[in-house]
């Protein structure tokens, strides 16, 4: 007997109370997580003049789609939306393909430069040139005010190479050997054997790439802020947020809001509508890949 035994009934009661307590705490956490999203959604669907009166929680009081109409009427926001979509699709697609190629080559024990290439990539995870040299390099390469700055400098995430490689390492080697005996070359093995088997891990890293492309604003701010044709949704949202933050810092907010009442769309309502537009696309993809990414996440943690 390692542990002191308690009467059965007491244990049962204690278990029940503990179960209830855990359920309650977890439920609270869920509410705290979800409420803000519902609140934003409710405000974005509520009449702007009415919102200023306050008291909107998870249901709109005066339902309207006016705020969204305003968002989609704004030519800059439309450009931003298109740019964000294009960079996300292109960036994630290229990211997945390039990660797969590098990971496959590194998974081949017989590749003549395997050690050297693996080391070259590994070092970059621990040491980086830092913000200034990277900024100057991109300037030097003439990538300022160009769409390519969204794609090329971050085309692949070195960390994801390791996730994919450990996935490939876990595949049965007999398949590749069989293809090899059938006379397939390396390219054919990659296309016909590796890629079809790697769908789960491709979905995982595809999501990671897509999220980071969709969510990034700093590259627009740093490199492309002077060209409105290259703006992105998150950057536009950041500008709106910055303006309202500056206002909130003082008592200016109240004054500004009073001034805004004459208009039908306040910056706050508009901001909430943009927030929803900027959130929904990612959240729409997420349930489909959810079953994959937990596995991808734990794969990456395996010590190599």
């Amino acid at each position: 007997m390692l542990f002191r035994k308690e009467p059965r009934r007491k244990i049962r009661l204690k278990t029940r109370v503990m179960d209830g307590l855990i359920m309650l705490i977890l439920l609270l956490i869920v509410i705290v997580t979800i409420y803000p999203f519902l609140n934003v959604l409710a405000i974005s669907l509520n009449d702007a003049n009415d919102t200023i009166k306050g008291g909107i929680h998870i249901f709109p009081r005066v339902f309207t789609l006016r705020n969204y109409e305003e968002v989609f009427k704004d030519p800059i926001l439309i450009t931003a939306f298109i740019n964000s979509v294009v960079r996300t699709v292109l960036g994630a697609g290229l990211g997945v393909i390039s990660t797969m190629m590098v990971a496959y080559v590194l998974s081949r024990r017989d590749f003549f430069a395997r050690k050297a290439v693996a080391t070259l990539f590994a070092i970059t995870m621990y040491i980086s040139g830092g913000m200034i040299p990277e900024f100057l390099l991109i300037k030097e390469l003439g990538m300022i005010n160009s769409f390519s700055v969204y794609i090329v400098p971050g085309i692949l995430g070195v960390y994801y190479i390791y996730i994919v490689r450990s996935f490939i390492d876990g595949l049965p080697s007999a398949l590749q050997e069989a293809a090899c005996i059938d006379g397939a070359n390396d390219l054919q093995i990659f296309m016909r054997v590796i890629l079809p088997l790697c769908k789960p891990v491709m979905a995982t890293i595809g999501l990671y790439y897509a999220v980071s492309h969709w969510n990034s604003w700093f590259d627009t701010y740093l490199f492309n802020s002077s060209n409105p044709n290259l703006t992105t949704l998150q950057y536009e949202l950041m500008k709106v947020l910055n303006n309202s933050n500056t206002a909130a810092a003082g008592h200016m907010l109240k004054m500004k809001q009073h001034a805004q009442t004459v208009r039908s769309v306040s910056p706050q309502s508009m901001r909430m509508a943009i927030t929803i537009v900027a959130t929904v696309p990612i959240l729409a993809v997420y349930p489909f890949v959810q079953k994959y990414f937990v596995r991808g996440m734990t794969l990456g943690a395996v010590k190599d």
């Binding site: 970059t124 980086s128 040139g129 040299p133 390099l137």
Partner: peptide
């Protein structure tokens, strides 16, 4: 993109 900045 990873080593040239180190030279910087």
């Amino acid at each position: 993109f990873k080593y040239l900045p180190l030279w910087g």
